[in-house]
Design a protein around this nucleic acid. Structure first.
Lengths: 208, 208
DNA sequence: TGTACATCAGTGAACGCGCGTTCACTGATGTAC
DNA sequence: TGTACATCAGTGAACGCGCGTTCACTGATGTAC
């Protein structure tokens, strides 16, 4: 048991058995996820808060992570994988029309971001520092597979790279503005996403 | 003179003369602006840092602002006005073709955001709490005038509200993603903005 | 013309807080002989 | 079968820092009489 400033009592975690030292690593990541889902703010995450939530001494975090940034990287990497999985699953389950697949991707992206706003904020409100220099961004693979889906939905003469980019930017803007300007008179989310998809796909159908 | 933790010496500000007490208010806002332009992070702003930068005792800030949030609101309001002015000036100076005016607005918006990235982040990475409840968002007037410009550029059958909204979202996404994913292989900024404008205006020219 | 007083425009010490990081320490469990 | 030892999986006290906020105080400049 530990007691915090407010006198709140935290259960103390039982030490792992020999050979199971990595259990703590997972527990720490889960605690950090929970805290970040509450705040959505990476700069509000502290080693001490994570330790309290995990039920462990602050210093124990150093056994598994070099510092707070390394822990944050682990969380971001995990969440980005989840996002990519959701998007790819939506594309795969969307029937045969390639345009429907692109629409499905767009909806899946904004739904994932909207259902877990704090996760999306953590992922996209700051750069994700790669584990080692020279490695590409996490997420480039997922972006590439979306690009392929867009290419399949457009005529060969269209600029699929640009359309994909505009799509991503617009969806990102749509999601983040809704989060930071909640009192703006937003239209229905799905309606706006559909409208955007129509405009971008149609513009490309003109051959650009 | 004051001395901070690193032994760095700060010039102490001369007190205002009688009747000029509001001078300090401006000095404080300027100091806060400078700090926020360096960090772009509202949560990194502290009363103590502002006081040091102003050359004044920390407690003196309370003479003019109820708390940090009130100071932050003043900065945001000021910067939002600057942004709106830049955009409106660009629209006014863009010739007679209403489509050119819309393009000019788009370029002015992203240029303002790109030239002062920290300002843009401060404005749009969190909600701007209005001074009093019931008052609309700061910036609604500016948004409305952009909406009018868009309406003038589209056929009457087009959904100018939706096009304006998509425009804003896409530009916002474009700007913020470039800031938080600087290592992504971005195309030329003006080229992407122009491409976006073309796609959205063309889609509306179809009458939607 | 002199002086007491009020007001303006601040100051400075102190408080308790949460934070990252360091350092030496501990207790249980497995293993070599 | 017993025991000394190594290792694993952590702990806990202490450090100095910057922070918001409080409180009583100060020094210069006007103003009433």
């Amino acid at each position: 048991m530990t007691v915090d400033a407010e006198g709140k009592v935290w259960p103390r975690r039982r030490p792992a058995r020999r050979g199971e030292g990595d259990r703590l690593r997972d527990d720490i990541i889960n605690a950090a996820c929970a805290l970040l889902e509450e705040s959505g703010d990476t700069s509000a995450l502290s080693l001490r808060a994570v330790a309290r939530k995990t039920g462990v001494a602050t210093t124990s975090i150093y056994l598994h992570f070099e510092d707070l940034n390394a822990l944050l990287r682990a969380v971001k990497s995990w969440w980005l994988d989840l996002l990519a999985e959701e998007v790819e699953a939506a594309a795969a389950g969307a029937g045969d029309d390639p345009r429907d697949r692109v629409r499905a991707i767009a909806h899946a992206y904004v739904n994932a971001a909207t259902n877990e706003p704090a996760r999306y904020q953590v992922l996209f409100s700051s750069e994700i520092t790669p584990p080692t220099a020279g490695v590409p961004y996490l997420g480039v693979r997922a972006y590439g597979s979306v690009l392929e889906r867009v290419r399949e939905a457009l005529p060969a003469s269209a600029d699929a790279d640009m359309v994909t980019l505009q799509f991503w930017c617009a969806l990102h803007g749509l999601v983040t503005l809704r989060q930071t300007r909640p009192r703006f008179p937003w239209p229905d989310l799905a309606l706006q996403v559909d409208d955007l998809a129509t405009r971008l796909i149609d513009s490309a159908a003109q051959g650009v």
